[in-house]
Design a protein around this nucleic acid. Structure first.
Lengths: 231, 231
DNA sequence: TTTAGATATTGTATTTTTGACAATAAATAG
DNA sequence: CTATTTATTGTCAAAAATACAATATCTAAA
């Protein structure tokens, strides 16, 4: 359909960068790859790829994510677009950031065609990255923090079955503020959670009850009562 | 620096669409142009243009805005990026939407190279537009509504000197809900406004006091007290 | 079996914010 | 001077947020 040679491609092209967030050990982590090719060989970076000439952006983002994680049915959120003419040393590459939230325990990452090495890094310990990826990452993390407070996406980061304290810890982490346990529970009372009747195991103290998010009920009350998630 | 011919350009190119919002007669209006060229000749559209191969996105958005309005120093906010492969009939054109807020009374719009005709249209009366511009417009208006509630950008839409009722009407319009005057005033009490000591003129009832936004004080309390605009 | 230690969970009282509505003030038009 | 209109401020009850106390339930060790 389109004739594209290397020169053409690298004089004006378009890419997607996928910021993949997880929540582990009480910290928000981001998936980093070690580049196995030039430019920025051996530098850490956010996984990204060029968009095919007739490929939709959302489709491209999904493809990149699937190639990396083998997970599907994940919510992908578009973030900012970056187009500084000198952001890519080999030509004009405009890139759109997408972010995805995954349950770290749900999958095993492995190095692929993408990269020599893959690892999770706590968001506050990210090293200097290739291209303008630090800029992209910071801007996308800001967006994540915003969306966490008014969309029910925290449940994409938490385990399928989670304790209320785990949920609280996530918000304490991103807001960088401690919260009162009792008051947190009052705040989330309107959010439809399913009490599973199960409990935490292998803890050396009173185990907490496990909950899961009732997304069907959420859609229902969002539509009927105009309820909006808010923390 | 870059060799670009028509075929190349239209096999893979990048554009900016500028959604320009104003507030007039108690309604949010958006600036529309009537296209003077194919495709979509004579259709209404959002003003937009291709980005030059070595031009920054923000710079391109500013250029397009200035060409159209002759205004400068306006805040430009990046919105969503649209990249459906079939959104442009002549080839792959990915576009990023930016929006700007202007005081309608501050400038006189005029048809330019861009368009045959230019006009303000209330956001709820927008006709069918060229390309996917209805989609872009709706998505950008949603973003505007969000940002209005947690960033002090309503003052870019209101006149330099405004009454508290004008401010209230803007929020009533975007939230599609009436508010109590007394309670609205309580809500905005933390926002630093300068009471100008002047009053409305040419009204056939008690004139309201005029205010302006104290952006310096806002920056100050935002930094020192961590205050955040919220309505 | 009992008890200490740790965290989960619930309750209560106070303060702050919100919301509904009443009362007063300041202009114009006749 | 008075009726009319909108601006502005005040009040009170309900609701939400906050601080903090009390109780519950598990593990592990004595």
């Amino acid at each position: 359909m389109y004739k594209i040679d290397f020169n053409n491609f690298f004089s004006y092209s378009f890419s997607i960068d996928c910021v993949i967030f997880g929540f582990k050990d009480g910290q928000v982590n981001v998936l980093m790859i070690k580049r196995s090719m030039e430019p920025f060989l051996n530098h850490w970076a956010i996984p990204g790829d060029l968009v095919y000439p007739d490929e939709d952006l959302q489709v491209a983002a999904t493809r990149i994510l699937t190639e990396l994680t083998n997970l599907s049915n994940l919510d992908l959120h578009q973030a900012q677009t970056f187009g500084n003419p000198s952001r890519h040393p080999q030509g004009r590459v405009i890139t759109t950031a997408y972010f995805a939230l995954i349950r770290i325990t749900d999958f095993e990452i492995e190095a692929s065609s993408f990269a020599e090495e893959v690892k999770w890094v706590p968001i506050h310990e990210v090293p200097e990255l290739a291209f303008d990826h630090n800029l992209i990452l910071n801007s996308t993390y800001e967006l994540l923090k915003q969306k966490l407070s008014y969309e029910p996406i925290c449940f994409d980061l938490l385990p399928e079955k989670f304790t209320l304290n785990q949920m609280q810890q996530l918000f304490e982490y991103v807001n960088e503020a401690e919260m009162d346990k009792a008051n947190f529970r009052k705040k989330i009372r309107p959010i439809p959670l399913i009490a599973l009747g199960e409990k935490q195991k292998n803890v050396k103290h009173r185990p907490a009850k496990l909950f899961s998010f009732d997304s069907e009920k959420y859609s229902e009350i969002a539509e009927e009562d105009g309820y909006r998630f808010k923390i």
